[in-house]
């Protein structure tokens, strides 16, 4: 069982996020492994440990510091890491990023052997598009079962539960496949001290565009499929009216709603 877990390096949600002059997200300052990708890493580790043998390869596409995201996955227990970085990738949008990820997966397959499963997070905590997983699946010609709250691998198939608003669906796909997981699926482990020490000795490959056989013209800002025209900070909300409840709070609330014609 060989599993690739996608791990994205994102700006810290708690910190101030900003844009560069060229309207791309500033990804150089304080970042971390997207929390939603920790669930993918955890699930990959559990599947491999249940299978009894195999390996988890953590793969990121991102700036130099994105290595931290791979490191964190290695500390959690992933066996190998791959970091795709190339100046020419900067400014890539969803589809270009998906092309880079797909090409990197092909390279991993070439170097390490067949991959049974690709696990990804639900969405990156900065972009929140939730399109990269299906686009990578499309580009690689893989079946995709997305938004799994439960994953069960049985031999050559994987069964996934998706919890929707009005129903839960059970999906079956044959391996190899791509599965994106939600934050309901497990409880990601914290790296242990032993894990942190062990991670230092684990292999971490650096790929550039040439390594993954992708033309620079296909990626980066110039090749982007979408263009940002304008960015404005949302004006701070007008301070609202705050009252302390002194026995009439509920009534006051409804009076206010009525004044706004909301009830």
């Amino acid at each position: 069982m060989r599993i690739i877990a996608f791990v994205k390096y994102v700006p810290d949600a708690a910190g101030d996020r900003s844009f560069e002059d060229d309207n791309t997200v500033d990804r150089e300052s304080d970042g971390l492994l997207s929390e939603l990708d920790e669930y993918a890493v955890e699930e990959a580790l559990q599947i491999v440990s249940q299978a009894g043998d195999g390996e988890v390869i953590a793969l990121t596409v991102g700036p130099e510091d994105a290595e931290d995201a791979v490191r964190k996955a290695l500390q959690m227990g992933a066996h190998k890491g791959v970091h795709v970085y190339d100046e020419d990738i900067e400014g890539s949008d969803a589809l270009s990023t998906s092309k880079v990820l797909a090409a990197a997966v092909r390279k991993v397959i070439e170097d390490e052997g067949d991959v049974d499963l690709i696990l990804t997070g639900l969405a990156s905590t900065d972009a929140l598009m939730s399109v990269v997983p299906v686009q990578v699946a499309e580009l690689l010609g893989l079946p995709a079962a997305t938004q799994a709250s439960d994953v069960e691998v049985n031999g050559s198939t994987v069964r996934v539960r998706r919890d929707g608003d009005t129903a839960s669906q059970y999906i079956e796909v044959a391996l190899p496949a791509l599965v994106s997981v939600t934050d309901q699926i497990n409880e990601p482990r914290y790296p242990s001290f032993k894990g942190i020490m062990a991670a230092k000795k684990k292999p971490l490959e650096d790929y550039d565009l040439e390594d993954i056989d992708l033309d620079a013209a296909e990626v980066g800002e110039d090749a982007a499929y979408t263009e940002v025209i304008d960015i404005t900070a949302r004006p701070p909300r007008q301070a609202g009216e705050i009252v302390a409840d002194e026995g009439e709070g509920g009534q006051q609330l409804v009076d206010w709603l009525a004044s706004k014609k909301l009830v």
């Binding site: 009216e241 009252v243 302390a244 409840d245 509920g250 609330l253």
Partner: peptide, 19 residues
């Protein structure tokens, strides 16, 4: 836009009655 500093177990039932 509008806030009530108080216990929801007091404020919400009163608001429900008021509605």
């Amino acid at each position: 836009d509008y806030g009530v500093v108080g216990d929801l177990f007091a404020v919400l039932p009163q608001a429900t009655d008021a509605v």
